[in-house]
Nucleic acid binder design. Structure first.
Lengths: 222, 222
DNA sequence: GTCTATACAAGGATAGAC
DNA sequence: GTCTATCCTTGTATAGAC
């Protein structure tokens, strides 16, 4: 029983430490890039000796991979099940609001992913690429069905998805530029509503739809 | 005269070498990040001994700064003079086409700038920030004038500028993701036209305008 | 102006004591 | 499971020969 209690306690420390390390590592990788972030920096900020980081994660690469994997894993929730019978205005509006919310809540995650893609996605596993392609293909097919039913304007569904991705993520990835131009220290809840409404209104009208106005900001809409 | 001829010849070598170094450095910084790109790599690919890079550029930081400065300097051409009397549809359409063209022609430049901003813009000089803010304010003022004249829908001009930036730059910065999803090895001229037309059509309609159709792809429109 | 050789620091990783 | 001390590589930068 002592053994069990012991391993439980140690297990708890393990979980807490790895959690702390991953959190700090994400921040440091975003701020300084993969090579710019040193294990020493991460260890210091996590309040652990450098060797412990290597104990929990075999190498810097593995640590980075783990950070990246967790980020990607947390994204499979958006736009889960949509069908040709759904209302495109509602679905697209919800998609835009959700993406802006994610950009606001997890800007670091968005940034790290952006860095990875800009560098040519050297750490992205093949299955992720395939999953992403399938995800886009599926959603594009539904959008195309809406177009064929005359529910919305004839536009390329894939480029529409890119447009929603880029215009929403911009507020996370280019945060420092956006804030500098808007002369702000940081985003406020109000900005998030303004941004969501702006993007939803322009994009929906742009594809021949009308914003529903059904979405209540800052609540669960998923 | 010999002296003059000599310094001329040497000057020519200097220009050619610095040019080559800057070109290679830009590529390496984009691929590997600031810390990931070593002076050795850059020297090798430029076909020069490492010490020569230090001879032309005092330090790695200075080299990076120079690369960044040149990129920013090459961007002041877009949307130069616009006035409240101009036709918003024409101006915005030209803006979108121009930005897509830049993303296609200089993807590395776009990527390096994106990396810099994502990292919090630690190397961006204050005057650049100020210039950017002024640029946006000026253009926003003109757009607001168009709105006040009833020429286009009531939308926030600053967010509209962000939207055009983000959706166009996406094709450069997220190139690897876009190409993977589109199942392509690289962009072709045709893609550029498709993208420009898509973005112009959705954004213009989104702000209550009609695409003019005046722009002839792949020609000078500036 | 160019390049070889080298100084010096930083970083990733591990051995081994606790 | 934790941490100190250390190894070894790599990287920036420069001195000094040509």
């Amino acid at each position: 029983m002592t053994g069990k209690k012991n391993s439980y306690k140690l297990g708890k420390i393990r979980v807490e430490n790895t959690e702390k390390i991953l959190e700090v590592a994400e921040k440091k990788f975003v701020e300084n890039g993969f090579h710019g972030a040193s294990m020493q920096m991460i260890a210091n900020e996590a309040g652990l000796p450098k060797a412990n980081i290597h104990y929990y994660f075999k190498s810097k690469e593995k640590l980075y991979d783990e950070v990246l994997t967790r980020i990607i894993g947390s994204w499979n929730s958006v736009l889960k099940d949509i069908t040709p019978d759904d209302d495109p205005a509602e679905v697209l509006e919800r998609f835009i609001y959700k993406k802006v919310e994610l950009a606001y809540k997890f800007p670091q995650a968005s940034k790290l992913f952006a860095l990875e893609i800009i560098h040519g996605a050297p750490h992205l596993k093949d299955h992720v690429r395939i999953d992403m392609r399938r995800w886009v293909r599926e959603k594009a097919k539904v959008i195309q069905a809406w177009i064929d039913q005359g529910k919305m304007a004839k536009v390329d569904p894939v480029h529409l998805i890119f447009m929603i991705w880029s215009s929403t993520q911009h507020y996370a990835d280019f945060e420092s530029q956006v804030l500098a131009i808007m002369n702000r220290a940081e985003y406020e809840e109000e900005d998030i509503n303004t941004i969501s409404e702006f993007l939803a209104s322009v994009i929906l009208r742009g594809v021949g739809l009308k914003p529903t106005g059904k979405i209540i900001p800052n609540t669960r809409n998923d």
